[in-house]
């Protein structure tokens, strides 16, 4: 069957199925199981109302359970087992973790991930804050914001191509077509550098790609927060003779600290999962490995599900402080 036709059928089936499920299950509940008539009418309506929320929630809970909750448990189990030749698996305790901790590539990935965690959220938030503060003051600020926000819509793979062109190097003597090398040579660099093969700095060059993408996000959120800062506090500071920098750092920053933390943690999560950029640009060569790509390597190239799952659990472990913090905040807000 043609995929497009299959797609249309799936939409029809999915949408029809959903609507049908909700509609029919409600009818069954209201008319067959607990009909709103007869001598138990009050009790029936009450009971129907107790069950109805679960009808509404059922499809979502099934999907969430199967696609997000179950994998967490299953990955934990896989990380403690080993596949046996010919199918089946055996419990091996922490062997997979031990093997992983003994690999240089793992430590390289972990080290790089921590570097990413330091640089990317800081860089994106700082540029986002700068862009938000500056664009709020000028007439064409919205156009400027749109353009800085635009990389948000570009895929990591697309961004990888865009930045590979920026980092491109040509042999000595030839005209440089990568902007970075063109500038480097223009200012007296000896010869074009293969930027993505110089350890340590190549990781920074990959991080720049993610900062470039995430700055727009930070800017949009922080700009809304800056607008929410009460005018009176700023006016009072002006009357007291504060200069613009003091106003920004001493008056505005403290008031939007909560939002800055939110932006920072959101970008942190993106960083922990970063995969496409490294996969497309260096594939972890030249000491640019990160955890998500290490895991993909283990799972689908080495076919080692045990170690792959163990490294996935490491990512989960790194995410969990943020997870717990978010959940606690959400619960406090609901109270």
């Amino acid at each position: 069957m043609h995929p497009a036709l299959q797609g249309i059928l799936t939409i029809a089936f999915g949408v029809g199925g959903c609507v049908g499920y909700f509609y029919i299950s409600n009818i069954i509940l209201d008319h067959l199981i607990f009909p709103a008539r007869g001598k138990h009418i009050a009790r029936n309506i009450r009971r129907a109302n107790i069950i109805r929320p679960w009808l509404f929630l059922l499809p979502a809970m099934l999907a969430l359970g199967l696609y997000l909750a179950y994998p967490v448990v299953e990955t934990l189990r896989l990380s403690l087992t080993e596949r046996l030749p010919g199918g089946g698996s055996a419990f091996v305790g922490l062997d997979n973790y031990q093997q992983m901790l003994g690999e240089d590539k793992f430590w390289e990935a972990l080290k790089n991930n921590f570097l990413w965690l330091l640089v990317v959220p800081a860089g994106s938030t700082a540029f986002g804050l700068l862009a938000a503060q500056l664009t709020d003051r000028i007439a064409w600020g919205n156009v400027a914001k749109s353009l800085i926000f635009m990389p948000m819509a570009i895929s990591f793979v697309g961004a990888a191509v865009i930045w590979k062109l920026v980092y491109d190097a040509r042999p000595p003597g030839a005209e440089q077509i990568g902007v970075l090398n063109a500038i480097y040579v223009y200012f007296g660099g000896s010869e074009a550098q293969q930027w993505l093969t110089i350890p340590f700095w190549n990781s920074i060059f990959l991080m720049i790609v993610l900062i470039w993408i995430q700055t727009g996000f930070a800017m949009v959120i922080l700009s809304a927060a800056l607008r929410g800062v009460p005018e009176e506090t700023i006016e009072a500071a002006i009357v007291d003779g504060a200069n613009p920098f003091q106003i920004f750092f001493r008056i505005k920053m403290p008031q939007i600290m909560g939002t800055i933390v939110v932006v920072w943690t959101t970008i942190t999560i993106v960083v922990l999962k970063v995969f496409d950029i490294v996969f497309a640009m260096t594939n972890g060569q030249w000491e640019t490995q990160v955890l998500a790509n290490y895991m993909f390597d283990k799972l689908f190239r080495a076919n080692d599900w045990g170690v792959g799952s163990a490294s996935a659990m490491v990512i989960m472990l790194l995410v969990s402080p943020i997870l717990i913090w978010n959940v606690r905040n959400a619960r406090r807000e609901m109270r």
Partner: peptide, 8 residues
Amino acid sequence: VPLQLALI
């Protein structure tokens, strides 16, 4: 929850 966990 990182979707990496869900792959295998």
